[in-house]
Amino acid sequence: MSTLHVLSHSPFTDSRLDSCLRICGAEDAILLCGDGAYGLQNAALQGKGVKVFVLAEDSQARNLPLPDWADSVDYPGFVQLCVDYDKVNTWL
């Protein structure tokens, strides 16, 4: 069973991303949105082998370059991800 983890808090002020990476399964993926998009600047996400998506408008608003280890999705893409994964875990 795969899980899409949705993170909307900056990883530089908050432990959600660290905790998420610790318990992330091999089939899981992470979607960054809101201040969670700053995760693109965080070395912790690099080379973890976990699939990373970012909501395009949030990375654009923050002028964050898209690294080669992440994919950008729009809102319809976000919805499609929610359908593709068995469940969604939003780190409120």
Binding site: T3, R22, I23, G25
Partner: peptide, 18 residues
């Protein structure tokens, strides 16, 4: 442990994190 938690997530149909 962390690996056991990853497996735990797999066992449930839905997850709510607060």
């Amino acid at each position: 442990g962390s690996d056991a938690i990853a497996h735990l997530l797999d066992r449930y149909d839905q997850v709510i994190t607060l």
